[in-house]
Design a protein around this nucleic acid. Structure first.
Lengths: 218, 218
DNA sequence: ACCGCGCATTGATCAACGTCAATAATGAGC
DNA sequence: GCTCATTATTGACGTTGATCAATGCGCGGT
C-alpha cells in the first residue's frame, strides 16, 4: 500500500502481509471480544462492521471494500470491539500487528502511512457522526450512495451503476434509519428521476442532483 | 502519559512536550483547514471539537478534558479537519508530531501507547455513532451524563456533582438533538428524581437509575 | 427448474422530536 | 451593582420517521 519504498523495503512489507484468508459470504472475519492480533487488508470482496451494545442494540459502523483496512479498533484494548462479517465471498491479507509495529519502527514511510490510515478512519467516523446528527433521511441516503459511488469509481468501476452488497436493513442500521424508511427513500429518489432502483441494483442518472440532495431541502 | 519507561526515556518524552500554550475561553486552539503540525494534550480546562460541513452544518464531535489528546484528525490530510475551541480558560501541551514520530520509532512503549490512543479514539467515535443511530433523546442524554460522570470521577472529581461547561445547544449538537429537546430531557430526568439541574450545575441522585435510563424504556 | 424463505415495497397510523414563540433567568462586562 | 445579551425553560403545534401490517418479489440452495 505505501509508496516511495526501496526494493528491499517493498520486499519486507510483502513478507509482512504474507498469509491470506478467505471468508465466505455471511461468515465473520472476527467477532467482538476476540483477542486482537492482526489487521486485515481486503483483497477482494465486501464487509460490514457492526457493534453490539450491552443492551443488545446493533449498529453497522461501516462497509469496507477492496483495499481498505479492518481491525484498527482492536489495538486499544487488545480485543476486537466489533464484528466484521463478509457480505460476499471475500479474501483478506492478514497483517500481524506486532510485526507491523516493528517494521514501522524501521521504515518511516510505513509508519507515516499507518498513522495516516488511522487518522483518516477517525475523520471518516466523524463525518458519519455528522450524517447521523444533522441529516434528514433522504439526505443520509443520498450521502451514502454518493460515497459508495466515489469509492467504486476510485477502484475503476462505474460511478453510476453498481450493486449494493447489503440489505435495506443493514443500510438502515448504518444510517440510523429503519429499513422501511430506506426503502421509501430509494423509491422517492427514483420518483424524482435521480436514479433507478431494482432491488440491489442502482443506476444513478443524475449524480450532480444526487449530491445536491445531500444538502437541506431546496 | 505512557508508563514503564526508563529514566532516560522519560526525560526524552518530557522534552518532546516542551512548550505549553494557554487558550482563553471561547478561543480556538486550531481551526479546520489550518496546517497540522502538532498534537495537543490538555493540561487544564475543557474543549469542544466541531466539524463544519460544506453546506454549513455544524456538529460537535466531542468534548475533551484534562489528559486527553486532540488533533489526531489532522494526521491523515496534513490539515486540521475540525475546530477545537476552549470552553473555559485552558492550557495544553504542544506535541510536535514529527518529533513524536521519530521518538516513537526509538521507544516502542511510546509507539504502542500512541497507537492505543488512536485506536481508542476510533472506538469512542463508534460508540457515539451507536448513540446517534439507535438511542432516543432521553437515552442519549443519560448516556452523555453518565459518560461525563465517569470521566470526572477518573480525574478525582465527584461522580455525582459537577458543572457542565457547554451550553444546551452544544450538548444538542453533540447528541443530534435540538437545544429545546435537551432542556426538556433534563427537566424530565429531574422530574423522575434521577438528578437535579440548575443551569449548568448537575447533581445526580440515582446514578444507577441514570445508567438504566440509557437502555430502552422500561 | 423449482421451491421457499428472506428481502423489499407500500399503506395507514402514531409517537417523538423539531419548530415557532414567548418568557424567564443568568452571568459577563461595565 | 446594574444592564443587556446570551442561555434556558416551557407551551402549542407540525413534521418526520417509526411502527404495525399486508403483499409481492427474487434469489440461493437443492
Amino acid at each position: 500500500m505505501p509508496v516511495g519504498l526501496s526494493e528491499q523495503e517493498i520486499e519486507r512489507v510483502d513478507e509482512l502481509v504474507g498469509t491470506r484468508r478467505k471468508v465466505a459470504r455471511g461468515m465473520p472475519l472476527y467477532l467482538s471480544g476476540e483477542p486482537f492480533q492482526s489487521l486485515f487488508a481486503i483483497r477482494t470482496g465486501f464487509f460490514k462492521t457492526e457493534v453490539v451494545s450491552e443492551d443488545g442494540r446493533e449498529q453497522v459502523t461501516g462497509f469496507q471494500m477492496a483495499g481498505e483496512l479492518m481491525g484498527l479498533d482492536g489495538i486499544g484494548t487488545g480485543q476486537h470491539n466489533c464484528d466484521a462479517r463478509a457480505l460476499e465471498d471475500s479474501e483478506v491479507c492478514v497483517i500481524p500487528f506486532n510485526r507491523l509495529s516493528e517494521l514501522s519502527r524501521e521504515i518511516d514511510t510505513l509508519q507515516h502511512h499507518f498513522h495516516k490510515v488511522m487518522s483518516r478512519e477517525i475523520v471518516r467516523d466523524q463525518s458519519v457522526m455528522m450524517l447521523l446528527g444533522t441529516m434528514r433521511a433522504e439526505e443520509r441516503l443520498a450521502a451514502f450512495l454518493v460515497n459508495l459511488s466515489q469509492r467504486f469509481v476510485s477502484r475503476g468501476y462505474s460511478a453510476t451503476e453498481f450493486n449494493l452488497r447489503m440489505t435495506r436493513e443493514e443500510i438502515g442500521s448504518y444510517l440510523g434509519l429503519k429499513l422501511e424508511t430506506v426503502s421509501r427513500g430509494l423509491s422517492r429518489l427514483q420518483d424524482e428521476g435521480l436514479l433507478s432502483v431494482s432491488n440491489k441494483n442502482i443506476r444513478i442518472h443524475k449524480l450532480d442532483d444526487l449530491k445536491k440532495a445531500m444538502s437541506p431541502r431546496c
